[in-house]
Design a protein around this nucleic acid. Structure first.
Lengths: 325, 325
DNA sequence: TTGTATGCGTTATCAC
DNA sequence: GTGATAACGCATACAA
């Protein structure tokens, strides 16, 4: 392994000078610079980032902690993060908690051991899996971002989509299509989040009436347990707050000979490839997942550089019109 | 930051003893052990992996290099890798080449600078993007696995699905469903790989006749440019060698009022969530992507431990029957 | 069983 | 501008 010392010797300068040359911005005489460059090329020098990290007490590694990576929802976000980090020459660690069988605390321990520069926790806005980590994180005082957790500011930066706006946008759209009997279908959405959607509904419908709310349980048969209720209540527009559920509900409607859109419009929350390949193609409220990742990464980088930053970043959703609504 | 030295002082032993205690397997007197444990707990010691890496000249970081992560094909593989690495306490770096605008050479440079323990290159079996890296990798002599590249053994470990078998299985299946006029539809599949599929076809059909072969070009309109050809040639079974294309072709068939399965069976290569949510649901040949990831990671770990290893691992595909064929 | 001393490759603090 | 020299936190050869 070729080290600074080797090229220093080869170029007849001190180790320190070489180090200075390599640290961009430092001034070195033109002539010694030439010799150093030559030595580096001739000996095939490769800098050792690990040694540098030990000395500087900082790495260029950012960790993303998420439930699972093989899910378009998370991988879109991750890709956004990856793009931004790459642009700034930071490396990206991935930790899948569903896969790892490690507790939050153990993961944080791991982060400290590895001198991680920053952590981005990515969760579904409905999940509670990162709850217990908060305490440890705050006392450790490492750059952290919570992405996609729609909770009030609690001492660490947050990036999430505006759920109330998403709801309002969706309901307005359904209304504009003549769908005035609306149901929300969700899967394990906690009450405080559901409240955002009900708020959005009120704003869009001038508080005239209440929407129907249905929760999809694990292992529930949509055609038997969900659709009859929709029909009996003369629902003509259903806003599904989970993209995959929207796909399956649409499937079930088609199978039940209910015309999607004409008889019952389906609006999906989330806009991945799934909505596009579903039949009929799903109209949806795009939560801007890639953008979410990009912003999260930017905020982590700001923190690392100790710059000023917005504690809360709220993303604007938008409607993507396709066939189902 | 609490270091070994600190807890050594606090426990009235030497740094060396503490280090020994921490390196599992080393023997320390019961009584000093107690004191060390106490010191660690009281001072809140966190080991420094970076310093350890510098000293030992090895990290526990494995890099996965792939085109993009927000693609179920790659993320399935990655999740398999993540699972295995996590089990063995290795960390996972992700580098998206499509996102990074780095050349192969630059990425390898990065790997060396960071003292990466091993690299897993993940590509589509049809892509050529990792071609130029081979040379540098070989001369550097770092643990490497090429995952999903169906090429002959070339000096580094390979893990890929048995494409000929996949083809044979698929064609046999179509034949068993009475679909005897078969077409292969692919997208940018190089000739040497297409050859595997033609081989599989011959094996399954006793070499009676040739299948029709259609390539999907970028921006091609399936309904206009592909389906008419299929119909004119009285094709009744099409084997699509790309899952997303299978989804879109199925969509186009439905739209053209051609009954999927009865009039034309569609068999897809690859078995992600996409096949499941497509309408009709796609029967497919599962290439075992998660398993591919798991095996790739295992092979990297074997190399890191300098164990014996199989240079080539070939995965067995299997049929997953759904509705489209 | 435990301690001492040295070095991993780099950056930083001084002098010159 | 440049050069000694001392850290960074840990592991290990060797001595005790």
């Amino acid at each position: 392994m070729v080290t600074l010392k080797d090229i220093a010797k080869h170029a007849n300068v001190s180790v320190c000078t070489v180090s200075r040359y390599l640290s961009a911005g430092m001034v070195v005489k033109k002539e010694t610079e030439k010799r150093i460059q030559l030595a580096i090329k001739e000996l095939g020098y490769v800098p050792n980032v690990v040694a540098k990290a030990l000395k500087r007490k900082e790495t260029f590694n950012v960790a993303v902690i998420l439930p699972k990576i093989n899910n378009l929802y998370y991988s879109e976000i991750t890709s956004g993060i990856s793009q931004t980090l790459g642009k700034h020459n930071y490396n990206l660690y991935i930790y899948e908690v569903d896969n790892l069988s490690l507790t939050e605390h153990e993961i944080l321990q791991l982060m400290r051991e590895n001198m991680i520069a920053g952590i981005i926790f990515v969760g579904l806005f409905s999940d509670r899996s990162f709850q217990e980590s908060i305490h440890s994180v705050l006392e450790w005082n490492i750059p952290v971002v919570y992405a996609n957790r729609c909770i009030p500011y609690a001492g660490f930066p947050l990036v999430y989509p505006d759920l109330t706006k998403a709801s309002k946008l969706g309901v307005q759209y359904l209304l504009s299509q003549g769908k005035d009997r609306i149901a929300f279908v969700h899967k394990h959405l906690p009450d405080h989040l559901l409240e955002h959607f009900l708020d959005g509904f009120r704003q869009a419908s001038n508080g005239e009436h209440q929407p129907m709310v249905i929760e999809i349980e694990e292992g529930m048969d949509l055609s038997k347990d969900c659709i009859p209720g929709l029909v009996q209540n003369h629902i003509n527009g259903v806003f599904v707050l989970n993209e995959l559920s929207a796909v399956y509900l649409t499937k079930a409607l088609v199978q039940a000979n209910i015309r999607v859109f004409e008889d019952m419009a389906v609006l999906s929350l989330g806009n991945s490839l799934m909505s596009e390949i579903s039949t009929p193609e799903l109209t949806c409220v795009d939560l801007q997942n890639r953008e979410l990742g990009i912003r999260s990464a930017e905020i982590i980088l700001s923190q690392i550089r100790k710059e000023e930053l917005e504690p809360v970043t709220v993303l604007e959703p938008s409607i993507v019109r396709r066939q189902s609504a």
